[in-house]
Write a protein that binds this DNA or RNA. Structure first.
Lengths: 253, 253
DNA sequence: AAGTGGTCTAGACCACTTT
DNA sequence: AAGTGGTCTAGACCACTTT
């Protein structure tokens, strides 16, 4: 019987969950193979079925394993690499890919938003926003042209930052104390016009990915509306999605 | 005591969960207000604590409510659209959007895969796959051109289906008993060449979205590799992402 | 027949919040 | 003190898969 602490502040199910997680992270249990069954956990640790289930359930919720009735629970493909899975800043994404992010500021000023961004930010076109236009680079190569709008009332005094080196998300989260929660992104295919071609240093007519995003704080307030244009040869967009039991979904109606 | 069916094929906890969901959707319980406590559910429906908990837990997982110890469970701010990312078939997606999905089969045969799809499916170019090419329509308008490859050994006898009306995912899940788990999709911008233009009935040079996906079973076996080309004016590609608390991740180590 | 996960019961003690 | 959710036990019957 493997040891767990019954007196720990850490619940038993979490201790077991973490133990299995370690085995997966270390490679002791590989992708696709079975983890302990609920019965095995009950015997190994002398715990009840509920506790055993809860340990596995936590791994399922975290996307680490999948349960299959009658068969067991199996280690899922690790979900690390994804570009759109988690709300990340450009700098964070480039750093994760092992490259060095830099920026060139084309334009940064306080102005009134157009209808599109005012609508995204749930403010009026008479309100004030900061508009920041940047070319983003990875290891010195231009790979994206970003335009972002932030409401002035949520980040007053934003003009003091130098976004050639400062991170916008760092400022929002650490300096203004906002809690970023989620983002909705729409992906649209475009071709480079003359302006974009010049900014990114590419020929016109090249197919590009344009994203339009709105980021929200935990309370639901829009904090940022942006339009980014990516050179897709240099920036891979990937999405990981999970299957939910479609029967459940249909019955809900 | 409100009525639930003890003999339904639908689990009790899901019946209760859906009942609460309806109250939230209809506005009877508004954002920020408390839903039934676990004790109340136990009394209202005469169920055990576990079943009551599981009903609330399902709502928490779906992002509908948040639990707060000592206080109760409260309705969350609705997340723009349908919450997270689900692996859906084309038909399922179109149905959700309130339109009628149809298909035109261009090509369906048993053949050897090229290197790209063989690699995606983790099989050899000497193995056999079914290749299915379809134009997918919503309310009669062509909006996507899909090419999908399925290993023959995982779905032997697939040729008996008529995929002008049958759903590939239905066949995979219900008839072959496979458990679809997750999918990885890469998004690429392209422009319509003559072949695509003809198939989709659009002018050449129009910007389009191409997706390359591989779907996996719960055990990690690739079940499907596909390339889809979408008319993006008719098909909005949106992604919702959540911000991770980087601090939490660090504590786990 | 034996093993797997899915659902459910009826209890218990605990930490936290409100009354 | 009473109510909330968090964790845990020890049992049960079920559907599904493998032996």
């Amino acid at each position: 019987m493997i040891q767990i602490s019954r007196s720990s502040y850490k619940p038993i199910y979490l201790q077991i969950c973490d133990l299995i997680r370690e085995k997966i992270d270390s490679g002791e249990i590989s992708v696709g193979s079975r983890v302990w069954s609920e019965n095995e956990i009950m015997e190994n640790f002398n715990v009840s079925r509920n506790t055993a289930r809860k340990a596995i359930e936590t791994l399922v919720i975290d996307g680490i394993v999948s349960r299959v009735q009658g068969k067991g629970s199996f280690v899922s493909q690790p979900k690390v690499e994804s570009g759109l899975q988690y709300l990340k800043s450009f700098s964070e994404e480039i750093l994760v890919k092992g490259m060095k992010p830099t920026s060139r500021v084309l334009n940064f000023k306080r102005e009134h938003p157009d209808f599109f961004h005012a609508n995204n930010l749930k403010i009026s076109v008479d309100d004030w926003v900061y508009k920041l236009e940047r070319v983003r680079m990875a290891d010195g190569d231009s790979i994206a042209y970003q335009t972002v709008f932030v409401p002035e009332n949520l980040c007053p005094g934003l003009e003091k930052y130098d976004f050639a080196k400062d991170s916008l998300y760092d400022a929002i989260e650490k300096d203004y104390g906002h809690v970023l929660s989620w983002q909705k992104t729409t992906v649209i295919p475009i071709v480079a016009d003359e302006k974009i071609a010049k900014v990114l240093g590419i020929p016109v007519e090249i197919p590009l990915l344009q994203t339009e995003s709105v980021s929200y704080l935990a309370g639901g307030t829009p904090i940022e509306s942006n339009v980014n244009i990516y050179l897709s040869e240099r920036y891979e967009f990937t999405v990981l999605s999970n299957r939910h039991n479609p029967a459940e979904r249909i019955e809900e109606e």
